[in-house]
Design a protein around this nucleic acid. Structure first.
Lengths: 222, 222
DNA sequence: CCGTACATGGGTGGCACCACCCATCTCGGG
DNA sequence: CCCGAGATGGGTGGTGCCACCCATGTACGG
């Protein structure tokens, strides 16, 4: 665990699949004297590896990344490096995602549509241990959630299992059951089983509705 | 039309719905002595208004924006301001998008996953009147297309007919061929015919891809 | 230690989707 | 005045999706 009472800027790991966005965010953060980007990752797996290597104080993670999403990465990061603060960066103003981010241990949730000052403020809030979220008005909601979570109480449970989400992503990307089965090295029947379970859980009729759902929750891009 | 032989930096209009991305891209471009961002827009309509007001030399447009997509904005911009150079910025490495961008009069097509140097180079290429695109290898393809467009009518014709769009909307909303046929009071076969024509035109495989397309162009909400 | 949740796999059958083939009618432009 | 584009409709056949049925193994919590 890093000693945050020590002087020097906050050391930040930045993960986003778009190099252009990374570059821009880095310029914004490095422009602040108390913030410093020490590593950049292009996906969740890389973020995990770089975090182990660089031991940053704070990780700023894009939610939608190839290979491993920012949410998965957040879960792994908070397990592997307990002292690490997490800030989620996303394009989608989505409630489900938001709660998942909190459950994954994120200290804040920042939309890409916010101004650059807000990102800087979110970083500082995260390091102070304060929750930060985009509209600012919903802070009470978060605080309430965090309080409940601290007491180990009921949290908004995940609708889909990890495996189901994995398969949903592939379904929504347009892959056939056969293709998905080949990718995951499981039987076609199992893929169809998971898909059927998701359809039933979500009250949907076909993979087209699943696709729109996946887009809504930010699992894939349209 | 602006006199590009005059000295001074290239005056750029930047349009992206994410303020954070705008800020980052602006920092990248303003870091170059020959490039200068003179206006920022958050959606296509705003881009159009700001372009009329500021008369920039170059517009860098995100493809996916609310209200009016970058592609629509590009079409309107090239009609309203013939001297304006257009550069499309996108998250999607998608061939269909790419050709639509060219049809809309774009001089280049840059992925957000590219490095910042490439964006700067793309801006300079666009101002020199050279095509720029991401892999670099397909340049001949673009040049060929642009040559044809210069001689022939540069008018970007609509890809889908009105009837096709009507049916696409219903398809993307999840209605079956039978339901659509009943709604429009035509035969199931005709619905399937239109759908097949669209699949062929757009180079797609199934209605799932059509749905994502409909969401992209703003025909329906996810 | 037992139940529940989760992931895995199989079989059958109906139906929608989609790719081919074919045709007619209308309308506007060369 | 014809010709191409668009809208309309039909048939055949393959394949994938999806709804039912069934089962086994593992892991975790009460």
């Amino acid at each position: 665990m890093i000693d945050r009472t020590a002087p020097g800027p906050v050391r930040i790991l930045l993960a986003d699949d778009h190099a252009l966005v990374r570059r821009g965010v880095r310029l914004i953060l490095d422009g602040e004297p108390d913030l410093e980007v020490v590593a950049e990752a292009g996906d969740g797996a890389e973020a995990l590896a770089l975090a182990r290597e660089h031991r940053p104080d704070l990780a700023v993670l894009d939610v939608a990344m190839p290979r491993m999403t920012g949410l998965q990465a957040a879960r792994e990061l908070s397990a592997a490096l307990p002292g690490l603060r997490l800030l989620m960066l996303t394009m989608y103003d989505n409630e489900q995602y938001f709660f998942e981010a909190l459950k994954a241990g994120a200290a804040g949730y920042v939309l890409k549509s916010v101004a650059d000052r807000d990102l800087v403020e979110a970083c500082r809030s995260a390091m102070r241990g304060e929750p930060f979220l985009y509209p600012g008005a919903v802070t009470a909601l978060i605080r309430h959630y965090l309080d409940r979570a601290r007491q180990g109480e009921g949290v908004p449970e995940k609708i889909l299992t990890a495996r189901e989400e994995e398969i949903l992503k592939l379904v929504a990307e347009g892959h056939s059951s056969k293709e998905i089965a080949a990718t995951l090295v499981i039987s076609v029947k199992t893929v169809e089983r998971h898909r059927a379970n998701m359809l039933h859980k979500l009250g949907m009729r076909d993979r087209l509705e699943l696709t729109r759902y996946a887009i809504r929750v930010g699992l894939i891009e349209p």
